[in-house]
Design a protein around this nucleic acid. Structure first.
Lengths: 330, 330
DNA sequence: TTGTAAGCGTTATCAT
DNA sequence: ATGATAACGCTTACAA
């Protein structure tokens, strides 16, 4: 159907190897012949077959992105960034949504091992078993992690210092009203990330000799809304609140306003992660920003670098979250 | 490195063709041998090489999803749905973000034509030239469109009746206060989709012998906010507003409330598209829902069906938008 | 510089 | 039912 390299060789009346060299800018062809071949390739609109190339070269220039979900803004950001970086380098990306399901993950890993892909980027809570590393090792450990812990041989782990998030939030909430216990609202109680944030928050509070108020299981807008009333029953003085779920923050803000309190005058609120929600809340949410775009970018660079240099480093990079102030704090 | 079919054949002491038949459940192997081979394959953890398979079979079980951006919720929904459906059928997906850029698109199309992918799903405003069809024809026109117009041979076009969106919105806004001109706020003025919505809206208004108020260029939250004041200068009676950008709707709602008006009592607001924003607005936004998930699902089904049946139908399916009432209308 | 031929890991055709 | 072998489209020693 489509023109092949073989056809091109016949047309140019040279050997296939010569065409291959010419097309790939490799030494061993006279400039004269190369130009001629390139012209013909262009004229006949030749396009190489990646499968054949991959088979011969043992590399595909395709990498896979394993994600735990496709629900939130940050997944989208990562996809976006990874895609952008890959495209620059002529790589392509397969999206694998594991949905936090081990079966689906296994399934994908099996597919990927068949695909001869060059590398994998694993994001966040994607559940994995030993098979991940097994697969990786086949290709020389070309795996990069973003915000995920794994005691396995990987190229690079890009981690967020979630503890620091808690510290920063506590620090900010303390600034002006030292005597009031700040509040932290987290989602899943035994989630590693939430635990880290919580620890950092508590630590910082302890420095000030104060015990923070802790509410757990606040993930939805409704839970955010209700949590406020739960809160005002416990404490009667306005305070600062660090709430890790932005969607819950929306509910929280609503309930504060509904209750007749002023924001940020009475209650300061800090969210976590810069997404669309934090931008459209009213007032706009002050947040602890996690540099996921930078992380994703570096992840891709690391991966491609690792693929091309055949090295297995096993490096760990820690990224610091950062306070981005908007109108929900003063 | 990894075990190949050839190795397996040697181990089982049979010909490669026999192993291939056994592995692929094809006729021509005794049950006895098949079982034996399957057991060995399992034991040695054999996994086929998709590249080689693809090369031999001339099909890859990979399809590409071309999108105009990776910014909004609906892109995410489509990715999510497409991925889900494909995974069921053991297909994989390459994400190609064209960013509404013809160069990037061309680039991708070139890559894709090298990839020997089995099909393409093109979403929305992805800019395309004749090369798309050219590429498609090579593989027999395995292209499916979602919410995109293209006068080219494709398998199926899945289109939203955007005109109807305008009609439904106008209808709803009219219901109770027949004498007041409803308002429509759209974004890009010469965007096809917005034009259709506008036309439908105007048509319906005309049925009631009323000229609607039309505001264009309302895309951001800020524009939504300001548009309200622009509006109250023109009309002095509370009215209903159909605003096609949800993010702008957030601004609009804010300004209405800031202005001291009640919502939905004074101003009814209808948005477009069911995304996270419409759910977290306060009050929750009544919207014209476009069935993109259903469309995406059907698109995948169509595509895979088309790939397997080698047919080129050229069908068009129209999807009707639907009013989903929340609290911003009464 | 150029060509020949083997090899990448499968499937498919044709004998046996 | 089974096996040998060509074919898929490319790269890459090795020869010439």
């Amino acid at each position: 159907m489509a023109l092949t390299l073989k056809d091109l060789a016949r047309i140019a009346d040279v050997a296939e190897s010569t065409v291959s060299r010419a097309l790939n800018n490799k030494a061993g062809v006279s400039e004269e012949k190369r130009k001629e071949i390139l012209k013909l390739a262009d004229k006949y609109n030749y396009s190489p077959n990646r499968l054949a190339k991959g088979l011969a070269e043992q590399k595909t220039k395709i990498i896979a992105l394993l994600l735990p979900d496709l629900e939130n803004d940050s997944s989208l950001k990562v996809i976006n960034t990874v895609e952008e970086e890959l495209e620059k380098q002529d790589y392509q990306m397969l999206i694998c949504n594991t949905k936090n399901d081990l079966n689906k993950t296994e399934n994908y890993l099996k597919m990927l091992s068949e695909d001869q892909i060059d590398g994998i980027i694993v994001l966040g809570e994607t559940p994995t078993t030993g098979r991940l590393i097994q697969l990786g090792l086949d290709k020389g450990g070309k795996i990069v992690l973003i915000d995920k812990l794994l005691e396995e041989v990987v190229l690079t782990s890009h981690l967020i210092d979630h503890n620091k998030s808690g510290v920063i939030a506590a620090e900010k909430l303390f600034k002006k009203k030292v005597k009031i216990a700040p509040v932290i609202m987290i989602g899943e109680e035994n989630d590693y990330i939430e635990q880290e944030r919580l620890k950092g928050f508590i630590e910082k509070c302890n420095e000030h000799d104060i015990k923070p108020e802790i509410l757990t299981g606040i993930k939805t807008r409704e839970e955010g809304y209700k949590s406020f009333f739960e809160l005002v029953n416990k404490i009667d003085i306005p305070a600062g609140i660090f709430i890790t779920s932005n969607i819950a923050a929306i509910g929280l803000i609503e309930s504060i306003k509904t209750g007749g309190w002023l924001l940020p005058e009475d209650f300061e609120v800090i969210g976590c992660g810069e997404d669309i929600i934090s931008k459209i809340s009213n007032p706009r949410l002050t947040i602890i920003k996690e540099p996921i775009i930078e992380m994703a970018k570096n992840a891709v660079l690391n991966l491609i670098n690792g693929i091309q240099s055949e090295s297995i480093s096993g490096e760990v990079r820690i990224y610091e979250p950062e306070l981005v102030e908007s109108d929900s704090t003063k």
